[in-house]
Amino acid sequence: MSESKGEVVIRCEDLHRFLGEGEGRVHVLRGVTFEAKRGNVYAIVGPSGCGKSTLLYQLGLLDQPDGGKIWLDGELMSNSSDLARTAARNKHLGFVFQFHFLMLEFTALENVMMPLRKAGKMSQAEMEDRARGLLESVGLGDKTHRLGTQLSGGEQQRVAIARALANEPSVILADEPTGNLDQRNSNLVFDLLTKIARENDQAVVLVTHNPEIAKRCDFIRPMRDGEFVQSD
């Protein structure tokens, strides 16, 4: 099944997800419906364990739903093959995680080039130019050849943002991108993420505990016990 392309770039409908086995099995997502449009920033907020990160991983095709449907750029992706979901992640999605997840044996430049290498659409020089440009846009133009271990937490998160933007994805999914940073770096990272996404007409869906950050988003979607409790 496929839907026509439009402003909505990612959508899920009646999404269910259970985690755990046997008696410990928990119904984490209870029929969640959500959509994100280009150029908008969405904040999913709620207490720990309410299912917001699980929803983000479902939207990011990192996990298979137990029920419901997910469309990415108009294409039904729920229950698609691992290969199709992997290809969609490379083409349409960019991820920013709380713990940066930089590959520490690689330089900042090489980290940003990683998704570009996989896409295989550019020459080595083009990839380097693009990665360097992205690192400059996040203020790390002079630290391109530093290893992950030689960067501060804030710098690592900025490299992660540059990496998430490398393949010009339609959607950027961020799981508590500022959760591990001080106030100054939190603001810096958030501003960068939203500025670049808006400039490139990308949707940003971020999970956050930080009410200040949530307030600065275009939409806030609070979650409780695996469901959205109110809608903007």
Binding site: G60, L62, D82, L83, T86, A87, R89, N90, K91, L93, F95, F97, F99, F101, M103, M114, P115, K118, A119, R163, N167
Partner: peptide
Amino acid sequence: TKDIAILRSMGYTQDD
């Protein structure tokens, strides 16, 4: 494992 997960999130396949 984290590196593998991030590679997979960037579009690297199981075969990769």
